[in-house]
Design a protein around this nucleic acid. Structure first.
Length: 316
DNA sequence: AAATTCCACAACCGCTTTTCT
DNA sequence: GAGAAAAGCGGTTGTGGAATT
């Protein structure tokens, strides 16, 4: 597009932020809020580019950021989500409250990645690099109790790919509504010109995005959106299981009931919907994806040494 | 004690996507 | 609808402290 990047202006400071600069930025954001970062440096009295200010705020200064060592549970979540999603740091971060994508990315590159390699696992595929290498670590003698069972991850990934090839959803866990489950499902979207390999279905809808649905049976206020993909929104009130369609800049909801060939059943979702997401809405969304709620992805491999309850269900 | 290496993490860079006009 | 600006994202690099030689 030929526009000048905001940081191209000469004479701007780079490198580590000083405490004084942090104070200025925090004071400015607390007083005026964030947004329009390009104008922030001038108004805050900083010799930085707007992009640098934005990153500093998002990754370091924001008050609700959790810093410090990752817990065992966070570690497990990262590994398992990475096995499913790859380097989708922002999506992974959405499932780790108060952690930033940058922090998770750094943690992955400096810690987890090396650990997987040491264990003989490919950090990209999470599968053993060489046959038998894994046995040294997965022998079940308690040595690695409470660490991820990477055999499970490999099995999961294999089953997921198979499910994907068939356009189905992969589900882990028992069918009891009290047992935790994880469902990886496809989000239906409008046809995209470049997605020629997607699966076309009725109403010219194409399933070409995934949602990893996580929720809890026990804590209805658990602050995790059922939608893993930022910016995707769900209907506020509905008792029908439906489909989501991406209509340009907005996402709409199409009910299964009385679906017609026209767009008359499509209802617009308010832009401020996500920020006002209520537990009731989460329930609707989860229902919409035909899933049940689960404690967390960590529950997947807890108390089960052999992927007990693994099954695949046709979803769409 | 000085030099070197290693490591974690903050920050930058370039690109893409979304929003605004 | 087009172009510009802003925001978002992920890969990579730079920096400083700790550990090692």
């Amino acid at each position: 597009m030929g526009r000048m990047p905001c940081c191209e202006k000469g004479g701007l400071k780079k490198g580590l932020w000083t405490p004084e600069e942090d104070k200025k930025l925090v004071a400015y954001v607390e007083k005026h809020g964030h947004g329009n970062w390009r104008s922030v440096p001038d108004k805050a009295g900083l010799e930085r580019c707007g992009k640098s200010c934005r990153l500093r705020w998002i990754n370091y200064l924001k008050p609700d950021i959790k810093r410090g060592n990752f817990s065992m549970e966070e570690d497990h979540t990262i590994i398992q989500l990475h096995a499913l999603l790859g380097n989708k740091w922002s999506i992974i971060a959405a499932h780790l409250p108060r952690r930033t994508d940058n922090e998770i990315k750094n943690y992955w590159n400096t810690n987890v990645k090396k650990r997987l390699i040491r264990m003989g696992l490919d950090p990209v595929t999470h599968k053993p690099i060489k046959p038998n290498t894994f046995e040294r670590y997965g022998g079940g003698h308690g040595q690695f109790k409470n660490t991820i069972n990477t055999n499970h991850v490999a099995q999961w990934e294999s089953a997921r790919m198979e499910a994907e090839a068939r356009g189905s959803v992969l589900q882990v866990g028992s069918h009891s509504s009290h047992q935790p489950q994880l469902v990886l499902s496809k989000i239906p979207t409008q046809p995209c010109p470049s997605s020629s390999d997607s699966v076309s279905t009725k109403h010219n809808t194409v399933y070409n995005m995934y949602a990893l649905v996580l929720a809890t049976n026990h804590d209805p206020l658990w602050p995790v959106s059922p939608l893993s993909i930022p910016g995707w929104k769900v209907p506020a009130v509905s008792t029908n299981v439906g489909q989501f369609t991406n209509t340009g800049s907005s996402l709409s909801y199409e009910s299964d009931v009385n679906v017609t060939e026209t767009n008359s059943q499509i209802q617009k979702i308010p832009e401020n919907y996500l920020s006002n997401l209520q537990d009731e809405d989460i329930m609707v969304a989860v229902e919409a994806f035909r899933t049940i709620r689960c404690e967390s992805i960590l529950e997947l491999f807890r108390g089960s040494n052999d992927m007990e309850g693994l099954n695949k269900q046709s979803f769409f």
